[in-house]
Amino acid sequence: MNSPTAVSALIEDVAELGPFFAVQVHPPGTEPSGPWQQMSRPLLEERVSGVQEWLATAGGQPPGAVERRVAASVCHQGLAARLVSPALAAAVLHGLVLAPGLADSRWQLVIGGPVPLSLPEGAFAGGSTASPIQLAGELSRRLLDGPLRELADAMEAFSVSRHILWGNTASAVNGAATMITAARPDLTARTRTIISRLLDQPPLGDATETTPDGAFRRRSCCLIYRAAPGGRGALCGDCALKR
């Protein structure tokens, strides 16, 4: 998957699944044009502040009414979803494991929707494999233990526990799989085989469980319900607090 034509075809296939899957590409060692930024503490500070204000406004509250760690958790889940979604789609559709170095990825500060993401061309290097089990192992090694762990390390500084951060990541994995199977029902078995193996891997295995009826459930809460006035917002469908 080294030729520009092959990379372009993969990006188009992945983007058809929805906005959380769309990515741009930039050559290694270069900066993409436009308002792209490297992942950094200042970018995260600005992003968390923007999410905090957005959540407060949505609830008719002043920005300070929303706890900063709540905004940080919501921010983290959105960023994790942007890394997970195209990587999982590339694995399901093309048998390719994207390995985007977090330091080489570029982002734009957009609040209220999927954050624009540009990956280095090198992330698309490597051969493909048809085995879902092998793909799950590679995703665990190169994605979970790579940029997703780096992102969790960075967000922990905002007083969000590792338990919540890995729950957010697991929820992002399950959410991406749900969107893929909704768009491509013919890929349901392949997608579910990959994510069932992936969600069994540490640290995601400790962050999730399967309900008696076979549904996905995380063992933590992303805290978004606390952003509503009085902390009485609705719970997410996969929340540990929902019984």
Score class of each variant (00 low, 15 high):
residue 243 R to E: 13
residue 236 C to E: 14
residue 134 Q to K: 08
residue 49 S to I: 00
residue 44 L to S: 02
residue 64 G to N: 02
residue 116 P to T: 08
residue 228 A to L: 09
residue 37 Q to Y: 07
residue 66 V to M: 01
residue 82 R to L: 08
residue 239 C to V: 01
residue 24 Q to H: 10
residue 89 A to C: 09
residue 119 L to Q: 07
residue 126 G to V: 08
residue 46 E to T: 11
residue 204 L to E: 02
residue 195 I to P: 04
residue 14 V to N: 05
residue 5 T to H: 05
residue 199 L to G: 08
residue 212 P to M: 13
residue 125 A to S: 15
residue 173 V to C: 06
residue 38 Q to A: 15
residue 232 R to D: 13
residue 190 R to L: 14
residue 222 C to I: 08
residue 21 F to G: 05
residue 38 Q to F: 01
residue 26 H to A: 03
residue 107 W to K: 10
residue 199 L to F: 09
residue 101 G to A: 14
residue 148 L to R: 01
residue 38 Q to M: 03
residue 90 A to E: 12
residue 70 V to R: 04
residue 137 G to S: 11
residue 91 A to Q: 08
residue 65 A to E: 13
residue 41 R to I: 06
residue 130 A to N: 10
residue 56 A to T: 00
residue 156 E to T: 02
residue 155 M to G: 00
residue 62 P to I: 00
residue 238 D to I: 01
residue 39 M to C: 06
residue 76 H to Y: 14
residue 41 R to T: 13
residue 243 R to D: 09
residue 27 P to K: 03
residue 164 I to S: 00
residue 122 G to A: 14
residue 19 P to D: 15
residue 30 T to E: 15
residue 173 V to I: 15
residue 235 L to R: 13
residue 120 P to E: 14
residue 19 P to G: 04
residue 118 S to K: 11
residue 131 S to D: 15
residue 47 R to V: 05
residue 121 E to T: 13
residue 219 R to P: 05
residue 84 V to Y: 06
residue 134 Q to E: 15
residue 135 L to I: 11
residue 7 V to N: 03
residue 94 H to A: 15
residue 203 P to T: 12
residue 148 L to W: 02
residue 219 R to E: 12
residue 184 R to K: 14
residue 133 I to T: 12
residue 95 G to C: 02
residue 67 E to Q: 14
residue 47 R to E: 01
residue 194 I to M: 12
residue 122 G to C: 09
residue 232 R to N: 02
residue 102 L to M: 13
residue 46 E to P: 01
residue 234 A to Q: 10
residue 45 E to W: 01
residue 6 A to V: 10
residue 116 P to I: 12
residue 99 A to I: 13
residue 186 D to K: 06
residue 131 S to G: 05
residue 193 T to I: 06
residue 134 Q to Y: 08
residue 134 Q to P: 02
residue 78 G to M: 11
residue 32 P to L: 05
residue 145 D to K: 00
residue 82 R to F: 11
residue 165 L to E: 05
residue 178 T to S: 13
residue 117 L to R: 06
residue 41 R to V: 13
residue 240 A to Q: 07
residue 172 A to L: 04
residue 196 S to A: 15
residue 136 A to C: 04
residue 161 S to C: 09
residue 192 R to Y: 08
residue 166 W to C: 01
residue 54 W to C: 01
residue 17 L to K: 09
residue 204 L to W: 03
residue 152 A to Y: 00
residue 119 L to N: 09
residue 224 I to P: 07
residue 140 S to C: 07
residue 174 N to G: 05
residue 99 A to V: 07
residue 133 I to H: 11
residue 216 F to G: 03
residue 227 A to K: 01
residue 58 A to G: 13
